[in-house]
Structures are given as structure tokens and as C-alpha cells.
Computed example of a mutant assay.
Amino acid sequence: MRLVKTCAALVLVSLLSACTWWSENADVEPDIPEQQLYEEALSAMDDGNYSLGVERLQLLEARYPFGRYSEQAQLELIYAYFRTFEPDSASAAADRFIRLHPNHDNIDYAYYMKGLTAFEKDRSFLTRYLPLDETQRDPGAARDSFDSFATLVNRYPESEYAPDAQKRMQYLKNRLATHEIHVATYYMKRQAWLAAANRGRYVVENYQETPAVADGLAIMHEAYTQVGLTDLADDAMEVLTLNFPDYEVRSFREGSSSLLNIATFGLLGDAEEVAVPARPTQSLGETRAEEREKEDAKEERSWFDKVTFGVFE
């Protein structure tokens, strides 16, 4: 009887060991040569199957971390993540490549893709196809994108990616400046005059050659006037007049409206016109003049158009 129990125990242990061995080896893929994995990844990406490309590149990195294709696979993985709309993974892959290969010949590409990933992450689906003002949203991704592009342009000015990075930097600069004006306008409406003046001064000092500089000077003039700093207010107005002679000076404070204007939802009566921060260009090729023409076209609405809510005109 004792012998039977011992034999049964040995058989049970053998069966359990066999099950464990088969289960462990069931999920293990056969060894695939490094070159084959790399070629499969490139082929999948050429066919537009970037998800499969990511899978093959990840497997290549896991199997051959120090192989002949490892560095190039890391660069390809950045782009594959970018095309599969995984901005966080793409940014992390770019940071990893920059950290591991600071002297690589294609390090400029890693910086460019890092900036481009943040740039596209900031431009959501709604802002691309609907007339939403993205300058009022959190500018964190825009700052990250600008910093990456700035590093690329400063360190590698001869890079083939530098010209496009410079164009995107100008767009981002306009956007960040306009965001500061929105914040300053918020402070103006809350009568936080010094906070608004500091925001306006920050735009003037850090975002020169952007349309928002004129708004920054106007905010400085109005805010300094409110707190009695007439010398600073006069200086801001003098600079504004000399550099932007056609600028229409309007108040950035909360506007006041008559009772008739409020009762008729703005159709009748008088209302104080409040300044609106200038928006940055919505595309890299749109000029400031074209943007102003669009804004003027929106403002020129007839009385009949207002009454019918734009249905018949």
C-alpha cells in the first residue's frame, strides 16, 4: 500500500511538471533572426500597418538589445509610435534614444520627432476641424514642442529638419504669446492690475515679433494707469504708438452694457467694445493679413443677420 502511494505521488509530480513545461513553452515564439525582424517591421510600416511595425520593433529590441539593427530600430520605433497616435510612447522612445546615444549621427531626428510629437499632441481632433481657440487651453505640450525644436535648431542648425522646425517654432511662439494675453485679460477683468501688467511685460520681453506684443503693450498701459504708475503707462503707450501706429486701442477690462442691450441680447442699445486677444495663425502658411481679413468678415454682420441668427445671410 505504501508503495502504491509513493508511485502515485511520483506520477502526479511528473504530470504537473509536464504541464508546467508545456505551458511555459507554449507562449515562447521561436527564435527569429535579427535581420528578419527588422525587415518585417519595415515592410509592415511601408504597408501602413504601424501596429505590426511596433510589435516587430519591440520584439527586436527585446531579443537583440545590442544587435546591429538596435539603434536604427529605436529610431524607427519613435516614428511607429507617432503614426499609431501614441504620443507619450513616442516621446519616451525619443528621450530614451537621446539619453543612450547622445553622439549619434541621427540625434537631430530624435529631437525633431520629439518636438513633432508634442506639436501634434497639442492639436487635437476638435481643434483641427472646428473653429476652437486652442490658445485658451493648457500650453504645456506647446512649450515642450517649442523646447525640443529650439534644441534642434540651436545644436544642429545644418540639420535637414531645422527649416521645418523653425516654421513650427514661429507658430508655437505666436500661440504661447496669445495664451499669455488671455491670462492677462483674465486678470484685467478681475482688476488684478499688476498681475496683468506683468503678463503683458512678459510677452513684450520674451515673444517679440509676434502679433501679441501690441496687446501686451496696451495691457501694460491700461493696467499701469489703473494703479497710478503714469510714467510706466506713458512709456508703454509711446512704444505701442511708435511700433504699431495702426493699432486700435481698446479696453481689456470687463465691458459694460446698457439695460436695452442686455434685454435684447446685444441687438439694440449700446455696449462697450472689449478688446479681444489676437489669435495665432491656424496653419503654418497663413499670414497675419489673411487672418485679419477673416476676423473683419466675421465682424461685418448686418442687423437683419443678427436678428435671424445668420440663417438668411
Rank of each mutant, 00 (worst) to 15 (best):
D164W: 00
A41I: 12
P131H: 08
D164L: 01
A62L: 10
E313K: 12
A141H: 11
P245A: 13
P33D: 15
G255E: 11
L130R: 04
V213L: 07
F309N: 11
L229Y: 04
K173T: 04
A41P: 08
H179F: 03
L60E: 13
A80Y: 06
E286F: 09
G115L: 01
T84V: 11
K114W: 05
F312Q: 08
F304W: 15
L77W: 02
Y81T: 05
F304P: 03
Y79D: 15
N206H: 10
Y202C: 01
L259R: 09
C19Q: 12
I98R: 12
L284D: 05
Y129S: 11
G140W: 07
G200N: 04
I78G: 08
Y64N: 07
P280H: 08
P157S: 07
R83E: 15
P163M: 04
T210L: 05
Q58F: 00
F312K: 07
M1Q: 06
Q208F: 03
S257N: 15
R68K: 09
E290A: 14
Y79P: 06
N49P: 06
L132T: 11
Q136P: 00
E300W: 11
P87W: 08
D147I: 11
R250T: 14
E39P: 01
N106V: 03
P277F: 07
E295L: 09
T308D: 13
E86I: 03
V239Y: 01
L10Q: 02
T281Y: 02
Y161G: 05
D164S: 03
E55K: 14
W22K: 15
S14W: 12
A73T: 14
E158M: 12
S91L: 12
